[in-house]
Amino acid sequence: MTDATMIEAVGLTRRFGGFTAVKDVSARFERGKITSVIGPNGAGKSTFFNMLSGSLKPSNGRILFEGQDITGLAQHRFAPLGIAKSFQITSVFPQLSVLENVRLASQALVSRYDFWTPRARLEGLREIALGLLSEVGLEARADGVAGTLAHGEQRALEVTMALASRPRLLLLDEPTAGMSPEETVAMMALIRKLASERTIILVEHKMKLVMGVSDAIVVLHHGELIAAGTPDEIRGNEQVKRVYLGERQH
Rank of each mutant, 00 (worst) to 15 (best):
S86M: 02
G32Q: 15
V92Y: 06
R141M: 10
T160S: 13
A216D: 13
S46T: 14
S59A: 02
P167K: 01
P175D: 01
F48Y: 08
S180L: 01
F29R: 12
L52C: 05
M211K: 09
P58M: 03
T13S: 09
S59R: 02
I83C: 00
L52S: 00
H76V: 04
F16V: 10
P167W: 00
R141L: 12
P118W: 06
G18N: 12
Q107M: 14
L52N: 01
R155T: 02
V210P: 05
E100I: 05
I38P: 10
I89E: 14
L190Q: 12
V22Y: 10
M6T: 06
S46C: 10
L73W: 01
D69G: 03
E182S: 14
E174P: 04
V185F: 14
H250Y: 14
M179D: 01
G54L: 06
G152N: 15
Q107H: 13
A150D: 13
S86W: 01
M188T: 13
R14G: 03
Q68V: 09
L202G: 10
R248N: 13
V25A: 09
V218T: 04
I38W: 12
E204G: 14
I38G: 10
K33P: 15
Q68S: 08
A9L: 09
E139N: 12
R15P: 11
V110Q: 11
L225S: 08
P231M: 00
V185C: 07
A74H: 07
I89Q: 10
P80R: 00
I7N: 11
D114V: 14
K208D: 11
W116C: 09
P181V: 09
Y113D: 15
L125R: 07
H221D: 08
K45N: 12
G152A: 11
R14I: 02
V92G: 02
T184L: 06
D173W: 02
G72K: 00
Q95H: 15
G223C: 08
G137T: 03
E233D: 12
T35I: 09
F87T: 00
A129P: 15
R119A: 08
T13I: 05
P118Q: 04
T199V: 09
T230H: 00
E100C: 05
R126M: 04
A120I: 15
